[in-house]
């Protein structure tokens, strides 16, 4: 009944590790790392997230055919959770840097490390559904896959992604123009 480790009444989750773990890992690991890296902007952090996600997957009963979609969504959520926990720090760093750096325009800015921090802060501020849709879409999932993952109609995926992109651009612009 509960997935958490502690609780009043617990129906335990399966403890055994699934037999197809290595096979799924080898085919899906690059995708899972890439999803997390888009959020975190750091490969080592992304690999930590991927480990976490595969550990959970290893004990799950997710059907093999749905594994890639499940893992991608889990990677996006877990990476965004990591962002949230580090959000205060990220926002503070952005605030500190805003006062000393000069960013001429958004397109140039995105390549800088500084910009990475802004992207992280912007992603952390987006509504969760928008952030996940944005990251999954930019990780190559189709509209149908994103729709299934987020319980959206394929028609509204475009709207959700578009809103996220506008919000992201505005966040980046806001910082760029507040110099």
């Amino acid at each position: 009944m509960l997935a958490g480790r502690k609780g009043g009444v617990v129906v335990s989750r399966p403890q055994a590790v699934r037999a197809d773990l290595e096979q799924v890992f080898r085919s899906a690991y690059p995708r899972v790392v890439a999803v997390a890296a888009r959020v975190l902007g750091s490969r080592s952090e992304a690999e930590d997230v991927a480990q976490e996600v595969f550990l959970t997957f290893g004990r799950s009963a997710v059907p093999a055919g749905e594994a890639l979609g499940w893992l991608s969504v889990a990677a996006a959520h877990t990476a965004l959770n990591h962002l949230r926990s580090g959000r205060r720090r990220a926002v503070r760093e952005v605030a500190a840097r805003d006062s000393v750096t000069s960013v001429p325009d958004v397109a140039d800015a995105v390549v800088t490390l500084d910009e990475r921090r802004r992207v992280r802060a912007a992603l952390a501020r987006l509504p969760r559904k928008q952030a996940v849709a944005l990251v999954l879409r930019h990780s190559g999932l189709s509209y149908a896959e994103v729709a299934a993952a987020l319980d959206l109609s394929p028609g509204s995926v475009g709207t959700t992604v578009r809103r996220a992109e506008i919000a992201l651009r505005e966040e980046l612009n806001r910082h760029a123009s507040s110099e």
């Binding site: 773990l21 690059p30 890439a34 902007g41 910009e115 990475r116 944005l134 990251v135 992109e165």
Partner: peptide, 28 residues
Amino acid sequence: DAAVATEALSGDLTAHVDAGWQRLSTAV
């Protein structure tokens, strides 16, 4: 806007599968 997002969400996306698997199997 999509181009800005693509740029913003780019980065080092490579993964070391063998090293990753070794780490995971130890953790498991």
